[in-house]
């Protein structure tokens, strides 16, 4: 369990990225922080592995204040996946996946063997192991990034807009892959995105952030749609307009779900 207690982040130049945030991130679930630029969602994520230290309040992992843990040790125990994969361009795929275990002192042979298994896990062919990141497609790089994040079998996996830079088709694929993986592994996933659809798709808990680093609402997707906390949330999730205001229409004896603009959104199967 990860807990933010009255967390504030003010940068030396005076801007406040996060203001007095209290939130509990439940274990073995996916929590998605969603908001536009400047809402402080990435700052919150980075406080978990001490890439950023809060200027007020505490971040606790299983009851331990992260401020008391050596940052390098902390990071080696938490999976991290970022946009553009963040792979080391000068190391082969296999070495990238094995990076953290080897930093922790695992023997190279052992780390490599495990890395190959991880490539299977994320749906990559083992023949890619000896390539360099620049020789992979964007989607493949992201998968390697996920494999690296899983390499030390962390309880916590931080994902910072991991699918932000790939095209929509690959993105949909990666999202499904993540759902499958999470179904098997049950990690505590903290995911940051600005895409509300992605948040609703992946999140067990969705945290909607607004400008200035304040939480507007934290709840399950269904709860948010049913009871948006305020006008900002309602507007952000589009509950009262466009494609979320759905209604049914009959076409050739089947029930088609149609949005407010008349675009078909799906089929109702009983």
């Amino acid at each position: 369990m990860i807990e933010f207690r009255g967390v504030t982040k003010q940068f030396p130049d005076g801007t406040v990225a996060v203001r007095d945030v209290d939130i509990v991130i439940p274990p073995h679930k996916t929590t998605v922080f969603v908001g536009s630029s400047g809402s402080g969602k990435t700052t919150l994520l980075r406080m978990i592995n001490r890439m950023v230290d809060p200027s007020g309040g505490q971040v606790l992992i299983d009851g331990t204040d992260v401020a008391t843990v050596d940052p390098v040790r902390l990071r080696r125990g938490i999976g991290y996946v970022m946009q553009n994969s963040g792979l080391l361009p000068h190391r082969k795929v296999i070495d990238n996946v094995a990076t953290v275990p080897m930093l922790r002192g695992t023997k190279k042979r052992e780390a490599h063997a495990h890395a190959l298994e991880l490539l299977d896990t994320v749906g990559l062919d083992r023949s890619l192991a000896d390539r360099y990141p620049s020789q992979l497609s964007g989607g493949q790089q992201q998968r390697v990034g996920v494999a690296r994040g899983l390499a030390v079998d962390p309880n916590i996996l931080l994902m910072d807009e991991p699918f932000g830079a790939v095209d929509p088709i690959v993105r949909a694929e990666l999202q499904q892959e993540l759902l499958r993986l999470q179904g098997e592994l049950g990690k505590t996933v903290v995911f940051v995105t600005h895409d509300i659809d992605e948040a609703f798709l992946l999140g067990d808990q969705v945290v909607i952030m607004q400008q200035g680093g304040k939480i507007s609402q934290a709840a399950s997707p269904a709860e948010i749609l049913a009871h948006p906390a305020d006008a900002f949330v309602a507007d952000f999730v589009g509950a009262d307009r466009g494609k979320r205001a759905l209604h049914l229409t009959e076409v050739d004896g089947r029930s088609i779900v149609v949005d407010a603009d008349g675009r078909p959104a799906g089929v109702l199967t009983s």
């Binding site: 809402s39 969602k41 990435t42």
Partner: peptide, 19 residues
């Protein structure tokens, strides 16, 4: 004032000392 790639960092740039 910090990293030049705004899309990688939402909100304020990460200040060096914090890394």
């Amino acid at each position: 004032s910090g990293p030049t790639r705004p899309r990688a960092v939402v909100g304020r740039p990460i200040i060096e000392g914090n890394q």
